[in-house]
Simulated scan of single mutants.
Amino acid sequence: MDRLLQILSEMALPFAYDHFAEGESPNPPFICYLLPGSDNFSADGRVYYKVSEVHIELYCDSKDPALEATLEAVLDEHGIFYNKTEVWIESEKLYEVLYTFEMEV
C-alpha cells in the first residue's frame, strides 16, 4: 500500500480511497483508487504470494490527453503494466478514465 500511495503522490492530483466525503470533492481533475479484489498465488494450500487488483479512476470534466499521458508516464516509470478504459458519466458530467493493474502486496 505504501508503494501505491507513493505512486499516487507522484501524479500530483488530489486522491482518495473509493470516494471523497460528500461536499469535500475537489474540482476536477482528481483521482479515486480502489483495491477491489486479489489474484493471489497459492502453494501448498496457502497464500504464497499476495497480489492486489488496483483501480485508479481519473475524473476530468473534459478529455485531457496530456494529463492521461502524465499519469501513464508515472505508471510506466514504476514498471506497471496497466489496461485503460474510459466512460462519460452523464449524471456527474465527468469523464472517468480507469486504469486497472495488479500489484504485489
Rank of each mutant, 00 (worst) to 15 (best):
M1A: 11
M1T: 11
D2P: 08
L4K: 08
L4G: 07
L5K: 10
L5E: 14
Q6Y: 15
I7K: 07
L8G: 01
S9I: 00
S9V: 00
S9G: 05
E10K: 01
E10F: 03
E10H: 02
L13A: 08
L13G: 05
L13Y: 15
P14F: 04
F15Y: 15
F15S: 09
H19E: 12
F20A: 05
A21V: 13
E22S: 05
G23H: 15
S25M: 09
P26M: 09
P26S: 11
N27C: 11
P28K: 07
P28Y: 15
F30D: 05
I31W: 09
I31L: 15
I31P: 02
I31A: 10
I31N: 07
I31C: 07
C32R: 04
C32W: 08
L35F: 04
L35Q: 14
P36V: 04
G37V: 07
G37I: 05
S38Y: 06
D39P: 00
F41N: 07
F41C: 02
A43L: 09
D44H: 05
D44E: 12
D44Y: 11
D44V: 01
D44I: 01
D44S: 09
R46E: 13
V47S: 00
Y49R: 12
Y49A: 07
K50W: 01
K50G: 00
K50Q: 03
V51T: 07
S52W: 12
S52T: 01
V54H: 06
V54L: 09
V54Y: 04
H55R: 14
H55E: 14
I56H: 10
E57A: 04
C60A: 15
D61S: 09
S62R: 09
P65L: 13
L67F: 08
L67H: 05
A69R: 08
L71F: 02
L71P: 00
E72S: 02
E72K: 04
V74I: 02
V74P: 06
H78L: 03
H78K: 02
K84Y: 08
K84Q: 12
T85E: 06
E86L: 05
I89L: 11
I89M: 05
I89W: 15
I89Q: 04
S91C: 09
S91T: 13
E92Q: 13
L94T: 13
L94Q: 02
Y95A: 08
Y95M: 09
E96D: 08
E96V: 05
E96W: 10
V97G: 00
V97L: 01
V97M: 03
V97P: 00
L98Y: 02
L98W: 04
Y99S: 02
Y99F: 05
Y99R: 03
Y99I: 03
T100M: 03
T100W: 06
F101Y: 14
E102V: 13
E102P: 03
E102Y: 07
M103L: 13
E104A: 12
E104Y: 11
V105Y: 13
